[in-house]
Nucleic acid binder design. Structure first.
Length: 479
DNA sequence: AGGCAAATAT
DNA sequence: CATATTTGCC
């Protein structure tokens, strides 16, 4: 049995640092790495320095001395079993609270895959790799250690104390000194999320259920609940995005002239991505926030908007941006690197924030951009630099239309209407899946108010139109 | 179990 | 205050 007595030796001078230690230790436990860690060699590292690279590129230094810390000496073949680990967690919690007076975080039980990313570039994923986890996680350790060595060598130009105290903040659960024993939040790192998405896609978005996902992910530190929760959010987000896609596509369809022009003239701000493969992979996000129907369909045939890449499409998204975030458009003249502080930068305000340049667009004149899911195409258009006045008038002319569709996006009526409103119905018929998604999305948020006093068309009118086009709305009355 | 929504933490 | 994650309920 591993002993946690060593924990009592952890100094508490810098809480942040110590919290990080606890976190690291916890990670190690959760990694079932008993066979990978030589406890004796570990002990020799009296002043082990963990440094983690944060997404921002800043580094987390944990001036560390994990004295007398033992990793399970033969805790069993292949690591701890579930029970043992829980016991360990409990012990650890106890140690933290009673001795160290640290929050009883059995914190971040998840691997910090982010640090792993730097080493394990090409990563082999698959359903059958549950065995590899051990190695992979061993790599994490190595990565942590290596990063520590390297960056302490090359980056410690400035005073070290500076960094260690000021930057060593984690999502520290400070005051919450383990009262209710509420589970510590899972940190859905890029890598974790990537695996999640991969698993989901493997199963098929519709069929993906937590237990299976968990299985495929092969990450032991997660529970079904964790997955379920994340899945819930994933689905919700996906619906939003699909709704946006439909929305934008329908709008695009209304103003083909504008689109055509802008594309001809190479205006990245307006450049649409066509539904099929017509858009060069060179700028997969060149829609400048203009969402699109997935140009290349995944093998599983899910018609997901390309922006769902944001959600970490495993085969595409290698960007450092956070997973929920709209990736930066490299073709944009003024695009800013979005700060990776939050997952959800998808909605309009943030979209504007990260896609436009403050000096050019000091105050955006249209308040409706605060509306949920207000499509960024409006922003792109209205503020697009280098756009001709001719074009602008065209756009202005189209604004009311866009406006309506924009603000009403949350209602099933408007979403469906958006799809139905295409001038040439035969040109744009979203796949049933998308329609379904849009509808269910809308049903989920039926009462979003419409800014600017705009009203949606009557249900009857929309239904009539849909019916005329042969689109059957399956009545999924939830009441 | 799975899905959803309320509760809660950050 | 908004978002992310956990918890609890059906």
């Amino acid at each position: 049995m591993p002993t946690w007595a060593g924990m009592t030796h952890v100094k508490v001078e810098e809480e942040d640092v110590d919290e990080k230690k606890v976190e690291i230790l916890d990670s190690l436990i959760s990694m079932n790495l008993t066979q990978c860690i030589d406890s004796s060699s570990m002990k020799e590292e009296e002043d082990f320095n963990f440094q983690f690279l944060e997404q921002s590129g800043t580094k987390l230094e944990c001036d560390n001395s994990l004295e007398g810390f033992h990793f399970g000496n033969g805790g069993g073949v292949g690591g701890f079993n579930e029970d043992t680990r829980e016991q360990l967690d409990a012990d650890m919690d106890a140690a933290c609270t009673t001795v160290l007076d640290l929050p009883a975080t059995s914190s971040s039980m998840c691997l910090d895959f982010e640090s792993l990313d730097s080493v394990d570039g090409q990563e082999t994923n698959g359903p059958d790799e549950s065995i590899e986890i051990g190695e992979e996680e061993a790599l994490l350790l190595a990565a942590a250690a290596t990063a520590a060595d390297e960056s302490s060598d090359r980056e410690s130009i400035g005073p070290v104390e500076q960094t260690s105290s000021s930057q060593c903040r984690n999502k520290g659960s400070k005051g919450a000194a383990s009262s209710g024993r509420r589970k510590t939040k899972v940190d859905w790192t890029q890598e974790l999320h990537r695996r999640f998405v991969q698993a989901v896609e493997q199963l098929g978005v519709e069929k993906a259920i937590p237990s299976r996902i968990l299985e495929l992910m092969g990450v032991q530190c997660l529970t079904r609940h964790n997955i379920a929760s994340h899945l819930q959010k994933y689905r919700s987000h996906r619906r939003h995005m699909i709704a946006r896609d439909v929305e934008a596509a329908s709008w695009r369809h209304r103003r083909p002239l504008t689109w055509a022009r802008s594309q001809q003239e190479g205006n990245a701000w307006l450049a649409p991505i066509q539904t099929s493969s017509s858009f060069p992979a060179a700028h997969p996000y060149a829609s400048a926030g203009l969402p699109t129907i997935q140009p290349r369909l995944p093998a599983h045939g899910h018609h997901i908007g390309a922006h769902l890449v944001v959600w970490g499409h495993p085969t595409v998204d290698h960007s450092p941006t956070h997973m929920w975030q709209q990736p930066p458009v490299n073709t944009l003249p003024f695009s800013q690197e979005p700060d990776s502080s939050t997952y959800w930068q998808q909605t309009a305000p943030a979209c504007i924030d990260s896609w436009t340049h403050p000096s050019i667009f000091p105050a955006f004149p249209y308040p409706f951009f605060g509306a949920p899911y207000a499509p960024s195409f409006c922003a792109s258009q209205l503020v697009a630099p280098g756009i001709t006045s001719n074009e602008r008038s065209l756009m202005d002319e189209s604004l009311p239309v866009a406006l309506y569709q924009t603000t009403a996006i949350d209602s099933d009526i408007s979403a469906a209407a958006g799809a139905a409103a295409c001038s040439k119905p035969s040109d744009f018929l979203p796949p049933q899946e998308i329609l379904d998604a849009v509808i269910s999305e809308a049903l989920a948020n039926p009462c979003t108010p419409l800014p600017l006093g705009l009203k949606p068309p009557s249900v009857a009118a929309v239904m009539a139109e849909l019916f005329r086009q042969g689109i059957n709305i399956v009545a999924t009355s939830t009441s």
